[in-house]
Design a protein around this nucleic acid. Structure first.
Length: 418
RNA sequence: GGAGGAUUCGCAUAGUGGCCUAGUGCGCCCGCCUGCUAAGCGGGUUCCGGUUGAUCCCGGUCGAGGGUUCGAAUCCCUCAUCCUCCGCCA
């Protein structure tokens, strides 16, 4: 949900934002008109209600005939109040729907356009393609690290088993991510992965991405696609106080995605799967601190990628590819030699006050007034990283070099074929 | 799965149809008093929205949503959460 006062004051900013996303600016005008309808309905209801309350007080004191006369009048008034209230309910519903249809205001720096209109911010490392490169599935299967055939047998397409050193490799990476998160001031959290509708709705995942979400109808619960959801819901309805320093959490969870509409895309290996594990950073801060916090999250992501000794690039994601909640997004994409291209390994979003407004998360500003907080999130490690780790650290003899930072967790510096 | 109890301002509690414009205590904020501190005294203190230059004012808000009524914190229904107990179960 965007800031309505800001919208009323400067609708053009929101119309421009819609154009940058490649969306219709008319969504803004639909919301403005729903807002004004709602407010006028509210005003007529409030006027009638005030009259009713006033009469109620007179009735309490009145006696006999006078009381009877007043009762006559309030009966018709009660009808009018009820009708006015119904109009408020109707206009409020229309207004809510119009509000949900409008995504977050795109940040000034974000490039306009669609998926291919990103701005390249930097490239790090050497993107060589080794001779006789094997892709992560060949290598991982040969080394006994992963098993997609049995994954399909048990659960279907886009499922997999991580086995032996493959399982240990993922645990090592996730543990390293948690260790780094704790060192940089994040509170580690293992959150619930089944959430109620409000949590899903509040984080903005039931809009255009609702097809992506697993829903358990019998229990009216959703399986989360990222721990961003339970970490955002963690403080929903709360006031976080001064918030002079950002409040930071690192969630470790399994993540579930339906991958609807991606038939035929990335069907090989574990690039795009229905279930994976992830360590996710999540920050609550004052809106004026959000841009700086966003840079910080990006830096922590890069630090992890460097520990994995992976070549990568950083892109400033274009407005059309931001999703509902983000005002700006930076992705880190790591080199995947078998494909000869970069693939997304991390994504950090500044959601400004968009999620917090829906989830009713406040802080106390410098004047002591309640104000809506900002939320941000970013990836520290996921199962997909194994793709790039396997392919970039493969050796001509068929073994896999273990990145230095993972060696203490894994207890070895090379994974040999059996 | 079943039975009972609870949910009121940051915390604790009062409130069984109009006197609730929700009281009181604690905490917190401001002031007074006072060598200092504490105590004492006075005032303020739910949140959201509308309106306004700002105040004022108005409406909503007693877990959520419906209903009864001229009028609901209070009566009725549905739901959520927590607690106690019974049953089942890893």
């Amino acid at each position: 949900m965007i800031d309505l006062r800001a919208l009323r004051e400067n609708p053009d900013a929101y119309r421009d934002s819609q154009r940058k996303r490649g969306d219709s600016p008319e969504t803004v005008d639909a919301l403005l008109s729903a807002d004004s309808d709602h407010r006028s309905a509210l005003q007529s209801f409030e006027a009638l209600r005030a009259e009713q309350k006033g009469l109620g007080k007179q009735i309490a004191k009145a006696q006999g005939e006078e009381k009877q006369a007043l009762l006559e009048r309030t009966k018709t008034l009660a009808e009018e109040v009820k009708a006015a209230e119904a109009r408020v309910t109707a206009t409020a519903a229309a207004f809510d729907a119009a509000g949900k249809a409008l995504p977050n205001l795109v940040a000034d720096g974000a490039p306009a356009g669609g998926e291919d209109d990103f701005v390249l911010l930097k490239e790090v490392g050497d993107t060589a393609v080794p001779e006789d490169v094997r892709d992560h599935l060949d290598l991982g299967t040969a080394l006994g690290l992963l098993d997609t055939e049995r994954g399909a047998k048990a659960s279907g397409a886009r499922f997999y088993y991580l086995t032996g050193d493959g399982a240990l490799l993922q645990l090592a990476m996730l543990n390293l991510a948690v260790q780094q998160a704790v060192e940089t001031g994040f509170t580690p959290v293992i959150p619930p992965v089944l959430v109620r509708p409000e949590a899903m709705e509040g984080t903005g995942f039931l809009g255009e991405h609702s097809d992506e979400v697993y829903y358990l109808e019998r229990d009216e619960m959703y399986l989360v696609g990222t721990s961003e959801v339970p970490l955002a819901a963690y403080h929903s309805g709360e006031n976080l106080g001064e918030l002079s320093e950002p409040v930071r959490y690192a969630g470790w969870s399994s993540c579930f995605r339906r991958e609807a509409g991606s038939y035929g895309k990335d069907t090989r290996g574990i690039i795009r799967v229905h279930q994976f594990d992830k360590v996710e950073m999540f920050s609550y801060c004052r809106p004026e601190d959000a841009a700086a916090e966003h840079e910080r999250l990006l830096e922590y992501e890069e630090r992890m990628l460097q520990k994995m000794e992976l070549p990568y690039r950083v892109i400033d994601v274009a407005a059309g590819d931001l999703g509902t909640s983000a005002a700006r997004k930076f992705d880190c994409e790591a080199w995947v030699p078998s494909q000869g291209r970069y693939r997304e390994l991390t994504s950090t979003s500044n959601c400004t006050t968009f999620q917090a407004r829906r989830l009713n998360i406040k802080y106390r500003d410098e004047h002591g007034k309640n104000a809506v907080a900002a939320t941000l999130n970013g990836t520290l490690a996921t199962t997909r990283w194994l793709v790039s780790i396997l392919e970039n650290h493969q050796r001509p003899d068929g073994s896999l070099g273990v990145p230095k930072a993972l060696q203490p967790f894994l207890g070895k510096d090379v994974i040999e074929p059996k």
